[in-house]
Design a protein around this nucleic acid. Structure first.
Lengths: 210, 210, 210, 210
DNA sequence: TATGAATGAGAATTCATTCAT
DNA sequence: GATGAATGAATTCTCATTCAT
């Protein structure tokens, strides 16, 4: 607390941009780009409209800066996946577990996805960046694993270009949460969900006839 | 063309609401609720702002009317699923095929989903209606089939409450199409996709060890 | 009632203008000129906007026609005053009694006064007509009686140009009723009011010292 | 003039609300509530529409604020009446003289009365406030004096509930001025008017028979 | 005559943005 | 840097008026 108090004016100011970006995230997520008022963002920080314009030239630039600011977390995720070991199955499970944490349970990633879906038309390079930074690397990683599993004889042969299917339950869970939020109790228990997910993914629906 | 010309006032009038709803769909989908101007909708129909207000009291009511108007298609789908026969597997495949057509390939359903995601905060009963009319019946249908398959010995035992997982590839494909639209060639060939989807769903990733 | 029923279409139509003027009176009185919508007038009659325009070219003309239509009653009053007889005091009392009926108790005259006060700026000749038809003749009549009373020795000598003072209680009562309408119980009992009014007017406040 | 120039932003700002209220008074009085455009008020101040909305949330609130702002003068009048002395007649004369100044000659009070009459339907609590702050205290004051005069033997016995009659010439003069404004030379010379008014009020019309 | 769909000129209100302090 | 008064362009919604039927 005294640390809180010791903030010099200069330190205060150094924090401003981050505070504004945080506030912008909340407001843009709640209302979308057009329906968000710069003044609401300022109010949330406790400053006036003018102050926002000290740091960001326009509402559009603020939006884009906010998206960039909150799009960093994924890098760590992707880094982590490189350090895994064990069987292909083990590594696939580990990656999907990390993805679950990042996509389903991390509110920021989830809401960023909402903005990608709703504001994509207005900010087309948002889409491109999102694709290049998030979607493509994940898909590539999954495809690599599938290829590896197939050549090692662990996985059955199947076309690798549909690896969306493998991660689909994670994206779907996120989307349902985005839609129903906390209004409908749709959020599953992670462990139970992952167990059912892996079981189905690895073994399929059908009873195996020996 | 002469037919076009022959339209009487009365006929014109009977057409207006549908014309406006069509235009509203396009504009709301493109820009979202707030960023859509009533005048753009009017322009698209070829009338003036005032005319829109002859038929719809406010922009909000127009939005809601538009959603209702375009939310009808699903009923047929659900009706059709009742008439299927064959093994549980056959019927599951058939249903998932119908869902694919309705959710992935039907542009209206797809874009309605975008609006549910982006405007849900502003129109909360939109969410509720969407849940009750679309999500819940589908989930129920899938759960029924899974239960049937398990008790007939066709499917392995698994918890029925995660049947989202079964339809996830379809929702995921739709979401990716919503995001990348036609800007990235992500739209899969339906047959190849369905083949891979069913194969994975029914048999799983793992090689069966006899 | 059968008379009601027997109205031919032609008779119906002959009634239209009067119906519209009645409705216009109510709406203009309630809302003033600008805030009254032609459609509300039409609704009150049970026809559509267009019909009003069949009979009256513009909203302004309708307003003026309505004023003229309801400004007729006064003529009778003024005619009646010519037929009075008795002492000057008797005739003055009789005239003031008639004025009370006409100005305080007749809703139409009262509300017309409201419109004169509120819409005078917009319709300046409304003022002129009102002055020439209502105010001036009454004042003249009172002045005549005062002159007559003074020369007959019945009344004390006093300047005749302030005869407004003589009728003031009547106008004041009307104004208070216009303002407080039926929301405050300010409407006096006529007989008691007139008795007090005449007593004060004729004898004054002061005790007479013989 | 250089004073004009020296106005700092802060000083400007402190003045704005009053400037806007003044302008609002003029425009609302000229056109009534509905027919007054916010832009006209702004123009009169020399600012833009938006500026008016910086200070007042809606046109209705501006109207109400304006009424409140200009309804203060009466308090002084009522205070002054408490400090009078002399005979009941003297004090009655003094009060009526003050009322004349306030109601007939003060343009603001006069025009406020017009708004009370014309906008009463739309702003019902305007009426209530006007009654409680203006009408009721005056009537009460006059009634007190009449009671005092009657018990002191100065005035004849008469019902006190019609004291409206006593002030009627003042209200009537105001109303006539509101209606005919400066278009008809109806404004009386105050001294002559008051002399005639008091003479009639105190002594009545009739010649006294010793 | 009567209708009511359509118009288009406003009018209230909002809000991103600017700028003097 | 921070403020917040002021702007002005944009947007929703209204309504008198027209006109084909």
């Amino acid at each position: 607390m005294s640390a809180q108090k010791k903030l010099t004016r200069a330190e205060q100011k150094a924090l401003r941009p981050a505070q504004i970006l945080d506030a912008a995230f909340e407001e843009f997520v709640r209302n979308g780009f057009t329906a968000t008022r710069v003044e609401d963002i300022a109010d949330r920080v406790g400053v006036t409209k003018g102050t926002v314009y000290v740091y960001f030239e326009t509402k559009e630039q603020l939006f884009e800066a906010m998206i960039s600011h909150f799009s960093v977390a994924f890098h760590e995720l992707l880094d982590n996946t490189d350090r895994l070991d064990g069987s292909v199955t083990d590594r696939l499970k580990a990656i999907l577990g990390l993805l679950y944490d990042q996509i389903v349970e991390d509110r920021i990633t989830r809401e960023l996805l909402r903005l990608v879906i709703s504001e994509g038309h207005r900010f087309p390079d948002l889409i491109d960046r999102h694709h290049d930074q998030f979607i493509a690397p994940i898909i590539a990683k999954i495809e690599d694993l599938m290829r590896e599993g197939m050549s090692s004889g662990e996985f059955r042969q199947m076309p690798v270009e549909f690896s969306d299917i493998v991660v689909a339950p994670i994206l779907t869970t996120t989307i349902l949460r985005l839609i129903f939020d906390d209004r409908r109790a749709r959020t599953p228990n992670k462990d139970a969900f992952m167990r059912a997910y892996f079981d189905l993914l690895l073994n399929g629906l059908l009873v195996r006839r020996s």
